[in-house]
Simulated assay, not measured.
Amino acid sequence: MNNTKWNEIRLAMISMKSPPLWKITYINGYETAVDGEWFYHFSEGGYLDIHYLDVITNSVEQHALVGAILRIIHLPGMETETGYRIFGYADSFGNVNYL
């Protein structure tokens, strides 16, 4: 995914009244701690090596709203039990669905 799409996610989450939590897994396997600060923390270090982003929702209403936002942005990802997973990179063997 490119920087424009990552920034679209960041700006959309900032604009929410109650933004969801997030966690990033990088290509090298490093996982960040769960965080809720989208303005500075999310963009720290850039987006180049993000394998995937887990967006963690905490209510049915928030889950529905985040899902609607992610579908508008049209991102490669999937719905999970705890929210959504957005892919920065996908392997060449799998099918990638878009939200």
Rank of each mutant, 00 (worst) to 15 (best):
T80F: 04
V34T: 15
I86N: 02
G46L: 13
R85Q: 15
N28L: 05
Y47T: 02
E79F: 01
Y26N: 10
E31P: 01
P20Y: 06
Y52I: 00
I50K: 12
T25P: 01
N58K: 13
G45W: 15
L53R: 06
R71L: 01
V55S: 04
R71A: 04
E79S: 07
L75F: 03
M78D: 02
D49Y: 13
P19A: 05
I69H: 00
S59R: 05
L65W: 04
T32F: 06
P20N: 11
P20S: 14
S43T: 12
H51L: 14
D35L: 15
A33M: 08
L48G: 13
V66D: 02
S59G: 10
V34N: 07
P20H: 13
L70P: 00
D49H: 13
Y40P: 00
I72R: 11
T25V: 14
N28S: 12
D35R: 15
V34C: 03
E31M: 11
L48P: 00
D35C: 11
T25E: 06
D54H: 08
I24K: 15
I72P: 00
F39P: 00
G29N: 12
P76L: 03
A68W: 01
D54L: 10
E79T: 13
I24P: 04
A68E: 14
G83R: 04
